[in-house]
Design a protein around this nucleic acid. Structure first.
Lengths: 199, 199
DNA sequence: CCTTCTAAGTTTAGTGCTAAAGTCTTCGAG
DNA sequence: CTCGAAGACTTTAGCACTAAACTTAGAAGG
């Protein structure tokens, strides 16, 4: 076999987030929960449903985002950088270290990502004139345009994703997710994996 | 600086899923939504809340899973393989190709992952006697034990995560997530990124 | 000033991944 | 029966990332 036909569009270029697209033979969510229950009696199916659906949903969404931004000629990794710079607000500047922290990368990885993106004209990289140890990464107009295009695609996609949910349901879902998020953000797993409150 | 103290445990060994741990200076969810709205008027804050909370939640959870299974001496990537083999049911066997499809990896990556895991005694790799082109990857007793230990930690963690939600709320959350999941699983984004129904 | 320390980035080595080429077995047609 | 094609991995090349070493600018102390 010359090339892996069948792996075609399933395999995306490297991205910063999970892009695993499960194959078609993956068991359905219900089958999966039933199988785990057979092997592990203590499993709470309600908890497992929430957690597994969250995981699958996110993987599918990341694949979809990757495909969409790829159509704009950027990778998901690059899109993350654009988003972070826009979030910082005008004049859309951050240092490599700060960018690395926010994206959860090492400074080394950031150096290379900025190299690429500067080469593509999405950002500029300059030394800070006031403190020549510091480097300033700034969004170019082209980068800002790319971000806007990607944002438009993403928000259309997200609106479609939630299409089947009523306004009330969207509100409830958002509120429940925010409560879970607070639980993970304001707590750290202890040695046993249990979440211990920090405040 | 000799080593990057401060990047310590935040950076985990490579895993199959997103393990990016956002730094402490990342804006809060509300700040993020407000910032995006300033830059992009068409944004629906309710949709953005759901989607962003989903994304953040998943990233945090993956970091937590990674830390937990690391305590058992396995990586998140290895745990994914163990889960997939257990899901296949006794006698816990699958070929590399099938494993790769279900995990969303290329066969090449699977070859190397199986090498490592066979070296660690978590699985065995043998040629199929009936069809010598095929290879059979089978979970060892040690691999099964590791899976069980990881599963126990994971389900404790998941129970803790949902601790603040009542039974009813868990049910509602699960149901809403399953509906979103169905929407992404039964539809494919078209060229414009819109989801088109397949059935 | 002139060390010494520390912070911010960059460089180097090694890992795990994808894409594509290569190997080996089996199957099917002539 | 033999040859060609297809299937199921494995190997090779190249990329993005982490960990750790290195570089250089500014800060602190004598």
């Amino acid at each position: 076999m010359k090339d892996f036909r069948g792996w075609g569009r399933a395999i995306l270029p490297a991205m910063s987030e999970s892009t695993e697209e499960p194959g078609p033979s993956e068991p359905s969510l219900d089958e999966q929960i039933a199988a785990y229950q057979r092997e592990f009696r203590d499993l709470d199916p309600q908890v497992e449903q929430v957690v597994s659906a969250l995981g699958r949903l996110n993987r599918r969404m990341n694949v979809a985002y990757g495909r969409q931004v790829a159509a704009l000629g950027i990778s998901n990794a690059e899109w993350e950088v654009l988003k972070t710079l826009v979030l910082a607000g005008a004049p859309y500047r951050l240092g490599p270290g700060e960018l690395a922290k926010r994206l959860g990368l090492t400074p080394a990885a950031m150096t290379h990502r900025i190299d690429r993106m500067a080469g593509e004209g999405l950002v500029t990289r300059d030394r800070d004139e006031n403190n020549r140890v510091r480097v300033i990464v700034e969004l170019t107009d082209e980068g800002r345009t790319k971000w806007l295009e990607a944002m438009r695609m993403a928000s259309d996609f997200e609106e479609d994703l939630l299409q089947d949910l009523s306004g009330d349901e969207r509100g409830v879902l958002g509120e429940l997710l925010v409560r879970l998020l607070r639980r993970v953000e304001h707590a750290q797993p202890d040695a046993g994996g249990r979440l211990t409150d920090l405040d």
